[in-house]
Design a protein around this nucleic acid. Structure first.
Length: 347
DNA sequence: GACCCGTGGCT
DNA sequence: TAGCCAAGGGT
């Protein structure tokens, strides 16, 4: 069962050129790996860059060194620690998963792809990645990098996302059962550093000469993609109420946009924008609100212009967050707080 | 399959 | 600058 020439070249390239990442053991190493670290890093890296996730990985590992420690944490602590990383459903599922491992599996992760797939927040990609990297199972690990690499190798003409089953099938035919962890990470590193979305570096690629997209002369034209729709613009008004070095905050509903996070009191965010009555209704108190300007923020499926109104004073029925803990808020609200602080001259 | 769900960097 | 992009999952 020797890997054929293409696989050999890619594995050799990986062993010479692997990225050195905090959750990774060196290629070819047989040192034991901690499944908790692999899982934690994989969840953080979902749709998130290595540069952005890395400080959070260190912070979480330092504060909660084991999956059981994480399972025992308070929800609010974990959500606050995740603030700024985005896709907050991941944080809720991270906790649910840690508790499932603690309560259903005696604190040990299931060691098979199928078992992992039953955990909250663990989908096809993450289950395969943890199975391959932490447990050496020859799983078919397909992320966006792998889709791009495979689509180019075979010059797959069908556009994403419809091409996904075909790409998975082609990827499955290449899995190196003797080195599942290295193979999975080799394809992802190749996609991240050589077979890049734009201006792929075919001159450095171990698959050069075996790649149909390279042969076409325009490898950057893969993967084909269905056109995406326009991003609508929404507007809203948020309130920064300050008193004694603290900011009035509200607990957001457990699901939906920024679900489970702390937020600022705010109107709804709509394309039409709030009318004056809606602004009055959303204000935490009838105070002399000052217009601090607006902040812009882009979400996945809409862009937001958020007008910031600020005031000093108290109001009933609110939680209060020290201004020094404003980093516990999602970025859109942190921007609003910063703007209000800038207007007041306190910062 | 379609839609929802963050953020920041890069071109 | 406006769009694209990143180790996806849930519903």
């Amino acid at each position: 069962m020797n890997p054929d020439r293409l696989q050999r070249r890619i594995l050799d390239w990986y062993r010479a050129s692997a990225r050195d990442l905090p959750w990774r053991r060196p290629p070819g190493s047989s040192a034991p790996v901690d499944p908790y670290r692999i899982w934690l890093s994989e969840v953080m890296l979902q749709q998130t860059t290595v540069a952005h996730a890395t400080p959070y990985f260190h912070a979480f590992l330092g504060r909660w060194p084991t999956v059981t420690a994480l399972a025992d944490a308070e929800d609010s602590e974990v959500m606050a620690a995740w603030a700024g990383l985005g896709y907050y459903a991941r944080a809720r599922n991270l906790l649910a998963c840690a508790r499932a491992v603690r309560d259903r599996f005696q604190g040990r992760f299931p060691e098979t792809e199928a078992g992992l797939l039953g955990l909250p927040g663990v989908g096809p990609y993450t289950a395969a990645a943890v199975a391959a990297i932490a447990f050496g199972e020859p799983a078919n690990v397909v992320d966006g990098n792998v889709e791009r690499v495979i689509s180019r190798l075979y010059a797959v003409q069908a556009p994403l996302p419809a091409a996904r089953p075909q790409l998975r099938e082609l990827a499955a035919g290449l899995v190196v059962a003797e080195a599942p962890a290295d193979w999975a990470q080799a394809l992802m590193d190749l996609g991240a550093t050589v077979c890049r979305p734009r201006s792929p570096a075919c001159g450095q690629c171990p698959a050069a000469g075996d790649c149909a997209a390279e042969a076409s002369g325009d490898p950057g034209a893969w993967p084909r993609k269905a056109p995406r729709g326009a991003r609508p613009a929404r507007t809203g008004v948020a309130f920064v109420l300050r008193q004694a070095g603290r900011i009035a905050v509200v607990q957001r509903p457990p699901r939906g946009l920024l679900g489970g996070m702390l937020g600022l009191p705010s109107t709804d965010w709509t394309e039409a924008g709030p009318d004056p009555a809606a602004i009055t209704d959303a204000a935490p108190a009838a105070l002399a609100w000052r217009d601090a300007g607006a902040v812009e923020h882009v979400f996945t499926h809409f862009s937001l212009t958020l007008t910031v109104l600020s005031a000093e004073g108290g109001a009933p029925g609110l939680e209060w967050l020290p201004e020094t803990s404003a980093g516990d808020l999602p970025s859109v609200f942190l921007k609003a707080v910063r703007r209000a602080q800038g207007m007041s001259g306190a910062e």
